[in-house]
Design a protein around this nucleic acid. Structure first.
Lengths: 225, 225
DNA sequence: CCACTTTTAGCCTGGTAGTCTAAAACCTTG
DNA sequence: CAAGGTTTTAGACTACCAGGCTAAAAGTGG
Protein backbone atom coordinates (compact mmCIF):
# COMPACT_ATOMS: atom_id res chain seq x y z
CA UNK A 1 0.00 0.00 0.00
CA UNK A 2 1.45 3.27 -1.12
CA UNK A 3 0.56 6.87 -0.44
CA UNK A 4 -0.42 9.21 -3.26
CA UNK A 5 2.18 11.83 -4.02
CA UNK A 6 1.26 15.40 -4.89
CA UNK A 7 3.31 18.53 -5.45
CA UNK A 8 2.29 22.01 -4.31
CA UNK A 9 3.71 25.45 -4.92
CA UNK A 10 3.79 28.55 -2.81
CA UNK A 11 4.15 31.13 -5.58
CA UNK A 12 4.94 34.55 -4.16
CA UNK A 13 4.98 37.97 -5.77
CA UNK A 14 5.00 41.50 -4.45
CA UNK A 15 1.87 43.20 -5.81
CA UNK A 16 0.54 46.58 -4.71
CA UNK A 17 3.27 46.77 -2.11
CA UNK A 18 2.18 43.55 -0.41
CA UNK A 19 3.51 40.02 -0.55
CA UNK A 20 0.88 37.89 -2.26
CA UNK A 21 0.46 34.20 -2.94
CA UNK A 22 -1.19 32.49 -5.90
CA UNK A 23 -4.30 30.53 -4.85
CA UNK A 24 -7.09 28.79 -6.67
CA UNK A 25 -10.56 27.95 -5.49
CA UNK A 26 -11.39 24.29 -5.24
CA UNK A 27 -14.32 23.15 -7.34
CA UNK A 28 -14.62 19.71 -5.76
CA UNK A 29 -14.88 18.12 -2.36
CA UNK A 30 -13.13 17.98 -0.03
CA UNK A 31 -12.80 21.63 0.89
CA UNK A 32 -15.00 22.58 -2.05
CA UNK A 33 -14.91 26.36 -2.45
CA UNK A 34 -11.86 26.76 -0.22
CA UNK A 35 -8.71 28.46 -1.46
CA UNK A 36 -5.71 26.23 -1.92
CA UNK A 37 -2.23 26.07 -3.35
CA UNK A 38 -1.78 25.08 -6.97
CA UNK A 39 -0.40 21.61 -7.60
CA UNK A 40 -1.46 18.07 -8.32
CA UNK A 41 -0.47 14.45 -8.57
CA UNK A 42 2.95 13.24 -9.51
CA UNK A 43 2.99 11.46 -12.86
CA UNK A 44 5.15 8.44 -13.72
CA UNK A 45 8.70 9.10 -14.92
CA UNK A 46 8.50 12.64 -13.61
CA UNK A 47 10.61 14.36 -10.97
CA UNK A 48 8.89 16.41 -8.30
CA UNK A 49 10.20 19.60 -9.85
CA UNK A 50 8.94 18.64 -13.28
CA UNK A 51 5.62 17.81 -11.71
CA UNK A 52 5.14 21.13 -9.98
CA UNK A 53 6.20 22.99 -13.11
CA UNK A 54 3.65 21.05 -15.13
CA UNK A 55 0.81 21.74 -12.70
CA UNK A 56 1.85 25.35 -12.36
CA UNK A 57 1.70 25.74 -16.12
CA UNK A 58 -2.07 25.30 -15.88
CA UNK A 59 -2.29 28.44 -13.77
CA UNK A 60 0.48 30.73 -14.87
CA UNK A 61 3.18 31.04 -17.48
CA UNK A 62 5.98 29.06 -15.86
CA UNK A 63 8.66 31.12 -17.57
CA UNK A 64 7.65 33.95 -15.29
CA UNK A 65 8.64 31.99 -12.19
CA UNK A 66 12.17 33.27 -11.71
CA UNK A 67 13.11 30.94 -8.87
CA UNK A 68 11.83 27.58 -7.69
CA UNK A 69 13.12 25.54 -4.78
CA UNK A 70 11.93 22.64 -2.69
CA UNK A 71 10.43 23.60 0.64
CA UNK A 72 9.35 20.55 2.61
CA UNK A 73 7.42 17.32 2.37
CA UNK A 74 4.29 16.98 4.45
CA UNK A 75 3.26 13.55 5.59
CA UNK A 76 0.65 13.75 8.33
CA UNK A 77 -1.70 10.82 7.55
CA UNK A 78 -4.62 13.04 8.52
CA UNK A 79 -3.70 15.95 6.31
CA UNK A 80 -6.10 14.81 3.59
CA UNK A 81 -9.46 13.50 4.83
CA UNK A 82 -10.10 10.97 2.09
CA UNK A 83 -6.71 9.84 0.91
CA UNK A 84 -3.29 8.88 2.23
CA UNK A 85 -1.34 11.61 0.55
CA UNK A 86 2.15 13.03 0.78
CA UNK A 87 2.69 16.57 -0.43
CA UNK A 88 6.03 18.07 -1.43
CA UNK A 89 5.85 21.84 -1.41
CA UNK A 90 7.94 24.17 -3.54
CA UNK A 91 8.59 27.86 -3.20
CA UNK A 92 8.24 29.89 -6.40
CA UNK A 93 9.03 33.57 -6.87
CA UNK A 94 7.69 35.89 -9.56
CA UNK A 95 9.20 39.31 -10.38
CA UNK A 96 6.99 42.24 -9.51
CA UNK A 97 6.80 43.59 -13.04
CA UNK A 98 5.03 40.67 -14.64
CA UNK A 99 1.28 40.25 -14.49
CA UNK A 100 0.50 36.76 -15.70
CA UNK A 101 -2.84 35.95 -17.21
CA UNK A 102 -4.75 33.76 -14.76
CA UNK A 103 -7.66 31.33 -15.09
CA UNK A 104 -11.05 32.23 -13.62
CA UNK A 105 -10.57 30.24 -10.44
CA UNK A 106 -7.12 31.61 -9.62
CA UNK A 107 -6.08 34.89 -8.01
CA UNK A 108 -3.49 36.50 -5.77
CA UNK A 109 -4.02 36.81 -2.02
CA UNK A 110 -2.09 38.90 0.47
CA UNK A 111 -0.08 36.51 2.64
CA UNK A 112 -0.68 38.83 5.56
CA UNK A 113 -4.45 38.32 5.37
CA UNK A 114 -5.02 34.79 4.25
CA UNK A 115 -8.48 33.26 4.25
CA UNK A 116 -8.90 29.77 5.67
CA UNK A 117 -6.99 27.52 3.28
CA UNK A 118 -7.72 23.93 2.39
CA UNK A 119 -5.74 21.12 4.02
CA UNK A 120 -2.47 22.31 5.58
CA UNK A 121 -1.91 24.87 2.84
CA UNK A 122 -2.03 27.75 5.29
CA UNK A 123 0.94 26.44 7.24
CA UNK A 124 2.80 25.68 4.05
CA UNK A 125 2.27 29.20 2.78
CA UNK A 126 3.68 30.67 5.97
CA UNK A 127 6.63 28.31 5.77
CA UNK A 128 7.26 29.62 2.28
CA UNK A 129 7.21 33.20 3.46
CA UNK A 130 9.63 32.37 6.25
CA UNK A 131 12.00 30.72 3.80
CA UNK A 132 11.86 33.77 1.56
CA UNK A 133 12.50 36.16 4.45
CA UNK A 134 15.50 34.19 5.63
CA UNK A 135 17.01 33.90 2.18
CA UNK A 136 16.54 37.57 1.40
CA UNK A 137 19.09 38.25 4.10
CA UNK A 138 21.91 35.94 3.07
CA UNK A 139 21.35 35.23 -0.62
CA UNK A 140 20.57 37.15 -3.77
CA UNK A 141 17.00 35.80 -4.10
CA UNK A 142 15.94 39.38 -4.51
CA UNK A 143 16.58 38.93 -8.22
CA UNK A 144 13.52 36.71 -8.39
CA UNK A 145 11.26 39.35 -6.90
CA UNK A 146 12.59 42.35 -8.80
CA UNK A 147 12.32 43.45 -12.43
CA UNK A 148 15.42 43.28 -14.61
CA UNK A 149 16.29 46.85 -13.75
CA UNK A 150 15.02 48.97 -10.91
CA UNK A 151 15.81 51.89 -8.65
CA UNK A 152 16.88 51.49 -5.08
CA UNK A 153 13.58 52.78 -3.75
CA UNK A 154 11.73 50.22 -5.77
CA UNK A 155 13.97 47.48 -4.46
CA UNK A 156 13.55 48.71 -0.93
CA UNK A 157 9.78 48.60 -1.33
CA UNK A 158 10.04 44.97 -2.42
CA UNK A 159 12.11 44.12 0.62
CA UNK A 160 9.69 45.97 2.87
CA UNK A 161 6.75 44.03 1.46
CA UNK A 162 8.51 40.70 1.74
CA UNK A 163 10.16 41.22 5.13
CA UNK A 164 7.25 43.00 6.76
CA UNK A 165 9.31 45.72 8.34
CA UNK A 166 11.00 48.96 7.38
CA UNK A 167 14.27 48.79 5.46
CA UNK A 168 16.77 51.58 4.99
CA UNK A 169 17.53 52.21 1.32
CA UNK A 170 20.94 53.50 2.32
CA UNK A 171 21.88 50.29 4.08
CA UNK A 172 20.31 48.12 1.45
CA UNK A 173 22.40 49.72 -1.25
CA UNK A 174 25.63 49.54 0.67
CA UNK A 175 25.16 45.96 1.75
CA UNK A 176 24.13 44.60 -1.63
CA UNK A 177 26.82 46.55 -3.45
CA UNK A 178 29.52 45.36 -1.11
CA UNK A 179 28.42 41.80 -1.54
CA UNK A 180 28.59 42.27 -5.26
CA UNK A 181 25.04 41.11 -5.88
CA UNK A 182 23.90 44.51 -7.14
CA UNK A 183 25.24 46.27 -10.22
CA UNK A 184 24.66 49.90 -11.27
CA UNK A 185 23.51 50.04 -14.89
CA UNK A 186 24.50 53.66 -15.31
CA UNK A 187 21.07 54.70 -16.54
CA UNK A 188 18.85 57.16 -14.75
CA UNK A 189 15.14 56.90 -14.15
CA UNK A 190 13.41 60.23 -14.86
CA UNK A 191 11.79 61.55 -11.73
CA UNK A 192 8.09 60.90 -11.45
CA UNK A 193 5.17 62.92 -10.11
CA UNK A 194 6.13 65.79 -7.88
CA UNK A 195 9.74 65.82 -8.98
CA UNK A 196 12.74 64.70 -7.03
CA UNK A 197 16.20 63.73 -8.06
CA UNK A 198 16.29 61.08 -10.78
CA UNK A 199 17.21 57.68 -9.40
CA UNK A 200 20.04 55.50 -10.62
CA UNK A 201 19.10 52.11 -12.03
CA UNK A 202 20.51 48.82 -10.82
CA UNK A 203 20.42 45.17 -11.82
CA UNK A 204 21.19 41.96 -9.98
CA UNK A 205 24.54 40.56 -10.97
CA UNK A 206 23.34 36.96 -11.20
CA UNK A 207 19.91 35.54 -11.84
CA UNK A 208 20.55 32.25 -10.15
CA UNK A 209 20.64 31.67 -6.43
CA UNK A 210 23.93 32.56 -4.82
CA UNK A 211 24.46 32.51 -1.10
CA UNK A 212 26.77 35.11 0.33
CA UNK A 213 28.81 33.59 3.13
CA UNK A 214 27.14 35.56 5.83
CA UNK A 215 28.76 34.53 9.03
CA UNK A 216 31.88 36.15 10.27
CA UNK A 217 31.46 33.73 13.13
CA UNK A 218 33.53 30.64 12.97
CA UNK A 219 35.06 31.42 9.66
CA UNK A 220 38.43 29.82 9.06
CA UNK A 221 40.91 31.89 11.05
CA UNK A 222 44.31 32.56 9.57
CA UNK A 223 46.00 31.48 12.77
CA UNK A 224 44.97 28.68 15.06
CA UNK A 225 45.05 28.99 18.79
CA UNK B 1 0.27 4.23 -10.44
CA UNK B 2 2.09 5.46 -7.40
CA UNK B 3 5.75 5.66 -6.45
CA UNK B 4 7.08 3.82 -3.43
CA UNK B 5 8.06 6.11 -0.56
CA UNK B 6 11.12 5.51 1.56
CA UNK B 7 12.80 7.49 4.30
CA UNK B 8 16.55 7.80 4.77
CA UNK B 9 18.71 9.28 7.48
CA UNK B 10 22.09 10.94 7.40
CA UNK B 11 23.14 10.29 10.99
CA UNK B 12 26.27 12.25 11.85
CA UNK B 13 28.57 12.06 14.83
CA UNK B 14 32.04 13.33 15.57
CA UNK B 15 34.19 10.30 16.34
CA UNK B 16 37.95 10.28 16.68
CA UNK B 17 38.02 13.93 15.72
CA UNK B 18 36.32 13.32 12.38
CA UNK B 19 32.76 13.77 11.23
CA UNK B 20 31.33 10.33 10.56
CA UNK B 21 28.11 8.99 9.11
CA UNK B 22 26.22 5.83 9.96
CA UNK B 23 26.13 3.38 7.03
CA UNK B 24 25.05 -0.19 6.56
CA UNK B 25 26.11 -2.68 3.98
CA UNK B 26 23.39 -3.91 1.63
CA UNK B 27 22.80 -7.64 1.66
CA UNK B 28 20.56 -7.69 -1.41
CA UNK B 29 20.54 -6.47 -4.97
CA UNK B 30 20.58 -3.81 -6.24
CA UNK B 31 23.90 -2.48 -5.02
CA UNK B 32 24.52 -5.65 -3.03
CA UNK B 33 27.53 -5.11 -0.81
CA UNK B 34 27.51 -1.36 -1.24
CA UNK B 35 27.30 0.98 1.72
CA UNK B 36 24.07 2.92 2.07
CA UNK B 37 22.09 5.14 4.39
CA UNK B 38 19.76 3.53 6.92
CA UNK B 39 16.05 3.78 6.19
CA UNK B 40 13.17 1.93 4.61
CA UNK B 41 9.65 2.02 3.36
CA UNK B 42 6.96 4.27 4.74
CA UNK B 43 4.23 2.32 6.50
CA UNK B 44 0.51 3.20 6.46
CA UNK B 45 -0.73 5.74 9.02
CA UNK B 46 2.83 6.83 9.67
CA UNK B 47 4.44 10.23 9.22
CA UNK B 48 7.81 10.45 7.51
CA UNK B 49 9.48 11.33 10.80
CA UNK B 50 7.90 8.38 12.57
CA UNK B 51 9.03 6.20 9.72
CA UNK B 52 12.66 7.22 9.82
CA UNK B 53 12.70 6.89 13.61
CA UNK B 54 11.31 3.38 13.30
CA UNK B 55 13.86 2.32 10.71
CA UNK B 56 16.66 3.97 12.59
CA UNK B 57 15.70 2.04 15.70
CA UNK B 58 16.86 -1.13 13.93
CA UNK B 59 20.36 0.26 13.74
CA UNK B 60 20.85 2.46 16.76
CA UNK B 61 19.15 3.52 19.96
CA UNK B 62 16.98 6.37 18.72
CA UNK B 63 17.08 8.13 22.08
CA UNK B 64 20.70 8.89 21.32
CA UNK B 65 19.78 10.94 18.27
CA UNK B 66 19.68 14.41 19.79
CA UNK B 67 18.37 16.21 16.74
CA UNK B 68 16.43 15.16 13.68
CA UNK B 69 15.24 17.35 10.84
CA UNK B 70 13.98 16.88 7.32
CA UNK B 71 16.59 17.44 4.64
CA UNK B 72 15.11 16.99 1.17
CA UNK B 73 13.03 14.68 -0.96
CA UNK B 74 14.70 13.00 -3.90
CA UNK B 75 12.58 12.11 -6.89
CA UNK B 76 14.73 11.29 -9.89
CA UNK B 77 12.88 8.41 -11.59
CA UNK B 78 16.26 6.80 -12.31
CA UNK B 79 17.56 6.99 -8.78
CA UNK B 80 16.51 3.40 -8.10
CA UNK B 81 17.13 0.93 -10.92
CA UNK B 82 14.24 -1.41 -10.26
CA UNK B 83 11.55 0.68 -8.67
CA UNK B 84 9.90 4.07 -8.95
CA UNK B 85 10.87 5.35 -5.55
CA UNK B 86 10.82 8.67 -3.76
CA UNK B 87 13.18 9.15 -0.85
CA UNK B 88 12.81 11.72 1.89
CA UNK B 89 16.09 12.23 3.70
CA UNK B 90 16.51 13.34 7.29
CA UNK B 91 19.52 14.70 9.10
CA UNK B 92 20.24 13.15 12.50
CA UNK B 93 22.90 14.20 15.00
CA UNK B 94 24.40 12.12 17.78
CA UNK B 95 26.43 13.57 20.68
CA UNK B 96 30.08 12.64 20.65
CA UNK B 97 30.03 10.94 24.05
CA UNK B 98 27.65 8.12 23.19
CA UNK B 99 28.77 4.95 21.50
CA UNK B 100 25.66 3.09 20.42
CA UNK B 101 25.71 -0.64 19.98
CA UNK B 102 25.48 -1.40 16.27
CA UNK B 103 24.41 -4.45 14.26
CA UNK B 104 26.98 -6.44 12.34
CA UNK B 105 26.26 -4.79 9.01
CA UNK B 106 26.42 -1.22 10.31
CA UNK B 107 29.38 1.03 11.03
CA UNK B 108 30.57 4.62 11.01
CA UNK B 109 32.39 6.10 8.03
CA UNK B 110 34.32 9.35 7.81
CA UNK B 111 32.30 11.72 5.65
CA UNK B 112 35.54 13.08 4.28
CA UNK B 113 36.49 9.71 2.79
CA UNK B 114 33.30 8.04 1.73
CA UNK B 115 33.34 4.86 -0.30
CA UNK B 116 31.04 4.62 -3.31
CA UNK B 117 27.54 4.67 -1.85
CA UNK B 118 24.43 2.98 -3.21
CA UNK B 119 21.87 5.00 -5.18
CA UNK B 120 22.20 8.76 -4.60
CA UNK B 121 23.19 8.29 -0.98
CA UNK B 122 26.55 9.91 -1.50
CA UNK B 123 25.00 13.18 -2.61
CA UNK B 124 22.49 13.04 0.20
CA UNK B 125 25.23 12.55 2.76
CA UNK B 126 27.10 15.58 1.50
CA UNK B 127 23.88 17.61 1.55
CA UNK B 128 23.48 16.62 5.18
CA UNK B 129 26.98 17.76 6.01
CA UNK B 130 26.35 21.08 4.29
CA UNK B 131 23.18 21.58 6.26
CA UNK B 132 25.02 20.86 9.49
CA UNK B 133 27.84 23.24 8.63
CA UNK B 134 25.45 26.05 7.82
CA UNK B 135 23.38 25.57 10.93
CA UNK B 136 26.40 25.40 13.21
CA UNK B 137 26.96 29.03 12.36
CA UNK B 138 23.56 30.51 13.06
CA UNK B 139 21.83 28.08 15.39
CA UNK B 140 22.64 26.18 18.54
CA UNK B 141 22.74 22.74 16.84
CA UNK B 142 26.03 22.25 18.56
CA UNK B 143 24.07 20.87 21.49
CA UNK B 144 23.29 17.79 19.39
CA UNK B 145 26.95 17.06 18.71
CA UNK B 146 28.30 17.75 22.20
CA UNK B 147 28.03 15.90 25.50
CA UNK B 148 25.93 17.42 28.26
CA UNK B 149 28.92 19.19 29.66
CA UNK B 150 32.24 19.89 28.02
CA UNK B 151 35.24 22.17 27.99
CA UNK B 152 35.79 24.79 25.36
CA UNK B 153 38.63 22.88 23.77
CA UNK B 154 36.42 19.86 23.42
CA UNK B 155 33.70 21.96 21.84
CA UNK B 156 36.18 23.56 19.51
CA UNK B 157 37.38 20.15 18.40
CA UNK B 158 33.80 19.22 17.56
CA UNK B 159 33.40 22.36 15.48
CA UNK B 160 36.70 21.74 13.74
CA UNK B 161 35.67 18.22 12.83
CA UNK B 162 32.25 19.28 11.58
CA UNK B 163 33.29 22.44 9.76
CA UNK B 164 36.51 21.09 8.34
CA UNK B 165 38.60 24.09 9.18
CA UNK B 166 40.36 25.62 12.16
CA UNK B 167 38.27 27.42 14.77
CA UNK B 168 39.53 29.79 17.43
CA UNK B 169 38.47 28.70 20.90
CA UNK B 170 38.62 32.32 22.02
CA UNK B 171 36.14 33.45 19.40
CA UNK B 172 33.96 30.43 19.82
CA UNK B 173 33.57 31.13 23.49
CA UNK B 174 32.86 34.82 23.07
CA UNK B 175 30.37 34.35 20.26
CA UNK B 176 28.41 31.55 21.88
CA UNK B 177 28.40 33.24 25.27
CA UNK B 178 27.17 36.52 23.87
CA UNK B 179 24.43 34.79 22.00
CA UNK B 180 23.41 33.13 25.21
CA UNK B 181 23.56 29.62 23.81
CA UNK B 182 26.43 28.58 26.08
CA UNK B 183 26.31 28.49 29.85
CA UNK B 184 29.24 28.07 32.27
CA UNK B 185 28.49 25.33 34.77
CA UNK B 186 31.04 26.59 37.27
CA UNK B 187 32.76 23.23 37.50
CA UNK B 188 36.35 22.65 36.52
CA UNK B 189 37.73 19.76 34.57
CA UNK B 190 40.95 18.47 36.19
CA UNK B 191 43.83 18.82 33.80
CA UNK B 192 44.85 15.67 32.00
CA UNK B 193 48.19 14.25 30.92
CA UNK B 194 51.06 16.67 30.96
CA UNK B 195 49.25 19.19 33.10
CA UNK B 196 47.89 22.50 32.07
CA UNK B 197 45.36 24.81 33.60
CA UNK B 198 42.08 23.08 34.43
CA UNK B 199 39.36 23.96 31.97
CA UNK B 200 35.98 25.42 32.85
CA UNK B 201 32.96 23.34 31.96
CA UNK B 202 30.04 24.58 29.88
CA UNK B 203 26.61 23.40 28.82
CA UNK B 204 24.26 24.41 26.06
CA UNK B 205 21.42 26.53 27.37
CA UNK B 206 18.73 24.79 25.31
CA UNK B 207 18.61 21.31 23.87
CA UNK B 208 16.16 22.14 21.13
CA UNK B 209 16.98 23.98 17.94
CA UNK B 210 17.04 27.73 18.33
CA UNK B 211 18.14 30.02 15.55
CA UNK B 212 19.99 33.14 16.55
CA UNK B 213 18.93 36.01 14.32
CA UNK B 214 22.26 36.20 12.59
CA UNK B 215 21.98 39.00 10.13
CA UNK B 216 22.55 42.54 11.15
CA UNK B 217 21.73 43.20 7.53
CA UNK B 218 18.28 44.43 6.81
CA UNK B 219 17.12 44.20 10.35
CA UNK B 220 14.23 46.48 11.23
CA UNK B 221 15.73 49.94 11.61
CA UNK B 222 14.51 52.10 14.42
CA UNK B 223 14.07 55.02 12.05
CA UNK B 224 13.04 54.89 8.42
CA UNK B 225 14.71 56.98 5.75
C1' DC C 1 13.70 81.95 -8.96
C1' DC C 2 11.89 79.69 -4.97
C1' DA C 3 9.74 75.87 -2.49
C1' DC C 4 9.28 71.08 -2.41
C1' DT C 5 10.52 66.24 -3.31
C1' DT C 6 13.45 62.35 -3.90
C1' DT C 7 17.90 60.44 -4.34
C1' DT C 8 22.60 60.15 -3.07
C1' DA C 9 27.11 60.64 -0.77
C1' DG C 10 29.63 60.83 3.35
C1' DC C 11 30.52 60.76 8.14
C1' DC C 12 29.91 59.06 12.70
C1' DT C 13 28.77 55.43 15.91
C1' DG C 14 28.25 50.96 17.84
C1' DG C 15 28.78 46.26 17.85
C1' DT C 16 31.04 42.04 16.71
C1' DA C 17 34.75 39.03 15.03
C1' DG C 18 39.85 38.05 14.37
C1' DT C 19 44.45 38.44 16.38
C1' DC C 20 47.73 38.67 19.83
C1' DT C 21 49.93 38.79 24.41
C1' DA C 22 50.34 37.77 28.95
C1' DA C 23 48.79 35.80 33.04
C1' DA C 24 46.69 31.91 35.55
C1' DA C 25 46.70 27.26 37.06
C1' DC C 26 48.23 22.82 36.89
C1' DC C 27 51.71 18.95 35.95
C1' DT C 28 56.29 16.82 35.79
C1' DT C 29 61.04 16.64 36.65
C1' DG C 30 65.48 17.65 38.66
C1' DC D 1 60.56 22.69 46.29
C1' DA D 2 61.89 25.37 42.51
C1' DA D 3 62.01 25.45 37.40
C1' DG D 4 60.21 24.54 33.09
C1' DG D 5 56.47 22.83 30.23
C1' DT D 6 51.47 22.76 29.06
C1' DT D 7 46.87 24.19 28.66
C1' DT D 8 43.33 27.47 29.61
C1' DT D 9 41.73 32.05 30.18
C1' DA D 10 41.27 37.11 30.29
C1' DG D 11 41.89 41.30 28.13
C1' DA D 12 43.44 44.60 24.84
C1' DC D 13 43.78 46.00 20.18
C1' DT D 14 42.32 46.11 15.42
C1' DA D 15 39.43 45.70 11.46
C1' DC D 16 35.21 45.45 9.43
C1' DC D 17 30.49 46.23 8.68
C1' DA D 18 25.75 47.68 9.53
C1' DG D 19 22.61 51.37 11.41
C1' DG D 20 21.69 56.26 11.88
C1' DC D 21 22.14 60.92 10.57
C1' DT D 22 22.97 65.12 7.80
C1' DA D 23 23.61 67.75 3.99
C1' DA D 24 24.20 68.18 -0.78
C1' DA D 25 22.58 66.96 -5.50
C1' DA D 26 19.21 67.05 -9.00
C1' DG D 27 14.98 67.11 -10.49
C1' DT D 28 9.52 69.27 -10.70
C1' DG D 29 5.96 72.78 -10.14
C1' DG D 30 4.37 77.29 -9.14
Amino acid sequence: MRPAQVTLAVVLQVRDGRLQVLLWQRAEEPFKGAWSLPGGYLAPAETLEQSIRRHLADKVDVREVAHLEQLETRSDPERHPGEWQLATAYLGLVPSDVNPALPEDTTWHAVGRLPELAFDHGEITLAGRERLRAKLSYTNVGFALAPDTFTLSELRDLYVAALGHAVSATNLKRVLLRRGVLLPTGELRPSGQGGGRPAACFRFEHSRLHITDPFAVLRPPRVID
